[in-house]
Design a protein around this nucleic acid. Sequence first.
DNA 1: AAGGTAATAT
DNA 2: GATATTACCT
Length: 606
Amino acid sequence: METTGFSSPRPDAFPAGLRVLVVDDDPTWLKILEKMLKKCSYEVTTCNLAREALHLLRERKDGFDIVISDVNMPDMDGFKLLEHVGLEMDLPVIMMSVDGETSRVMKGVQHGACDYLLKPIRMKELRNIWQHVFRKRIHEVRDIESHEGLEEIQMMRNCMEQSDDGYLFCGADLITGKKRKDVDYKQDDRQCSDPSSVKKARVVWTFDLHQKFVKAVNQFGLDKVGPKKILDLMGVPWLTRENVASHLQKYRLYLSRLQKGNELKSSFGGMKPSDFSSKDTAGNVCLHNSSTAPQNNVANGSYVVCGNKIPIKNVDSKICGEDMKIASVQMAESKEELIGVITDPQKSSNSGTSLNHSFGQIGSDVRYEPKIPAQFSWTEVPPVQFKQEPKPHFQSQSWSAEVRPVQFKQELKPHFQSENSFSHLPLCRNHIQVDCTEPILSHHPIPSTNEKDKRADIRPNCSKSRSKGIGIVNPVESKAELFSVQSKSHLPVCQEYEPIPCSIWNTKNHSLEQILLNDIDSSQRSLILGTGSGFRLWDEELQGYSPQGDFHPQNAGFENIESFAYSNQELIADIPPLLYDSWNFDFGNPSEATEYPVMDQGLFIA
DNA sequence: AAGGTAATAT
DNA sequence: GATATTACCT
């Protein structure tokens, strides 16, 4: 669908590259706006005179997508400019001024302003200005495909709003709507003919969203909390109480199952702590390996959506959905198995207990507490999120969740679709970091010698090459740097910020549950393998791509993470001290498997 | 109106 | 078969 494409130089990067003309007589504001807009990865042209702006606009017809103009300008009234632009170029114009006097705003709107912003203007407002461009395009083709455009804009808005960074990384499919037509053709036929019958958006509970949810729940306590409270606390505007209620229901159900599972296990004799523990160098019994395991599974698996069997080209949303479910289900099961192991209910019911403790704490005292404390808090922040956190943390600003109108099921899915068995993170750059760090974190502690052979058998599907650019991540300057740090040094081929694939567990063949129940040793091996497998891919690829050919996988995690961390102060600043400490701590113990808290991945889809 | 639960849809 | 949505009851 051509409807959305403004003439961005990079149509795949919508709305990056939106060409904005800013008109303001105040150079300071001009500068500020320019900076902000550029941060949105828009292409900015500034102009301090209205006449000059008009001149520019006339000169470069079709050279801009949108105009932002101050109202008060000495040489020409902003409204006048607005009029001219509206008449001559038919570009969306956003007016702005310091005062928000209703009459002025009204005047602006009456003159055809598509928006009226009050100074100081916030990033949030600027991020979304693309919508005006988009809307205009939609109106242009409305006669033909009205509803589609509206839905898409809604979708895009959702996408946008959920990204605090404000970049849209939905990939070309979203813009073109191509996939959607292909895949949801039937539904279109059935329902889309009547725009009013647009089905309610379906919330996909992503990690971030779930994270928010859990935080909210924990503030009240599981038993006292209600959907409304959670909703309010979460502060996700588009989320409805029903959504939350539904999720809460699922969450509670999950916890009760968890409880049951633990009961069952304890009555069966369960798994002894020693089954899971391994000794670290100091001779302390540690959870490390065992806890690493689920995490890896979890971490990697959480991003697994489509199985390996679905070529991306003709992904079937249904199948994909199923696979996603399977994946998350199995992960949930795995977690069930493991939660009892690494969670110390006593502790976790007190906030602030880190799961990153050695087994010494739990040790032989580990109780497979059949009762899960009301405030059962495997996701308790921040300590418990410790290893979990790097993922959401770096992405927390990006995609919290998606709302996808049913008809669009497919388009948004591409985020989660992979044509091979690798997890393919949503195509936003933030995830890249996640994706890269995750396997690395878990990997680095493990000696590489035995790994290769071990890895080989656990990774049945990982030898395939990554899927190529289902949607290309916007290489948005600032934060993309995070990734480019490593991509430059190790992944010249991955310029497009393609997510490094985490290999995943083939959840079907290697259900953690099975592994853990049947053969703990092999589970540990598998875990390691699981971790390593993700890595192996790296390894393979990196070695393949590395011009120097001297890439050392076992160091990569470190290097990358370090460079990643240190190369971005902003990001570091974002990390709660506690977390960051833990993080560092981890680095300080390269020989130990990183410990991850178990977290339910079945409750969110990533 | 809001929460909980269960049926239904996906 | 699991989960999201919806309907319905409290």
